[in-house]
């Protein structure tokens, strides 16, 4: 059993896996990685299961000391990682030795970095997941964001093949992104003008955005008759429009029920891109139908499979 030590946690670093499913009926949010695609790529590089828990670091990279030999991989936001101040590649399995220190330059594009460790973190699962749910102070490492001085146990690893992610599987992040949506459950509660406003304007992600949701600022969307509905189940990527007319996108830590009209729903293949957006970034929405959304997901999955990534 090895260990790593957090020397500097960065802005917000938490343990996240594929999410905590099965408990939303009790009001428990799913949590989990904001960008499941990058989580999967990082894990693949060190031959972990696709949704093994990683460190998700936000905007600033952490500084980490390894207290034993292992393999690591870094995916997600474009950033220069260093081991003992020597530049290393992203999206590739890298051997590190006891005493080595991992650090980062500044983020170029994107928002969230995923650090995978061969074999994963040896922390207990809570309700079948290692994800941290910050508002509930539970899961992950002591139910909280990582702090300087934290020592995390890592599982033993077998001699791992070092994977390198093919270039074409690595997304390009930009501060202006087209996000595809299908129409929302309460689309009829908006006026024609309201829907047009939503589809034709550019929205920017406000600073009041976090793992729970992205608040967007931009043109106000007109309701046909009020913004409230009887509280009802809501899923990641749903776009609610409260009475003030500016949309809110539900992200990983979103509450399980919502009481505002939903104008749209981000399609599954675009959720990872959304997870890489940060305050100030701009979004333009584009509507697709349900068949297209599911087709795109099938194609993405086949494409990953062709590269041996499952």
């Amino acid at each position: 059993m090895g260990k790593i030590k957090i020397l500097n946690p960065g802005l917000l670093s938490t343990i996240q896996d594929g999410g905590r499913f099965g408990y939303q009926q009790y009001g428990m949010p799913v949590a989990g990685a904001m960008d499941l695609h990058s989580l999967q790529l990082a894990n693949w590089c060190v031959r972990n299961p696709a949704h093994e828990a990683c460190i998700e670091a936000t905007i600033l990279g952490p500084t980490i000391e390894f207290q034993s030999d292992t393999y690591i991989a870094i995916s997600g936001a474009t950033i220069q990682p260093f081991v003992n101040e020597q530049a290393i590649n992203m999206n590739a399995g890298i051997k590190v030795r006891a005493g080595d220190v991992l650090s980062f330059g500044s983020i170029q594009t994107g928002c969230r970095i995923y650090i995978a460790i061969a074999g994963g973190f040896d922390i207990p699962e809570l309700m079948e997941s290692k994800s941290t749910y910050l508002r509930g102070n539970l899961g992950g490492f002591e139910g909280r964001a990582l702090k300087a001085g934290d020592e995390l146990e890592i599982a033993d690893y077998e001699r791992r093949l070092k994977g390198v992610v093919p270039e074409e599987l690595i997304p390009n992040y930009s501060n202006f992104t087209e996000i595809r949506i299908t129409s929302g459950a309460e689309i009829k509660r908006f006026t024609m003008d309201g829907v047009k406003t939503f589809l034709c304007s550019v929205y920017s992600i406000s600073p009041q955005s976090d793992r729970m949701g992205y608040r967007l600022s931009g043109q106000k969307i007109e309701h046909a008759n009020g913004a409230d509905i009887i509280s009802s189940g809501i899923v990641t990527g749903a776009i609610q429009v409260p009475g003030h007319g500016e949309p809110i996108i539900m992200m990983s830590d979103h509450q399980t029920v919502g009481g505002y009209t939903k104008i749209a729903q981000v399609i599954s293949v675009d959720l990872p891109l959304l997870g890489q957006m940060k305050p100030g970034d701009q979004i333009k929405f584009k509507e697709v139908n349900l068949d297209q959304a599911q087709q795109l997901l099938l194609e993405r999955n086949q494409w990953l499979k062709q590269h041996g990534i499952e």
């Binding site: 499913f21 099965g22 939303q24 009926q25 189940g233 599954s268 599911q294 997901l297």
Partner: peptide, 20 residues
Amino acid sequence: IECVPSYTDLMVLYDPLKIQ
């Protein structure tokens, strides 16, 4: 995957790779 009941409805979450 799971279901979320509320006042008037049931949200049914599914994996489109397993069932369209």
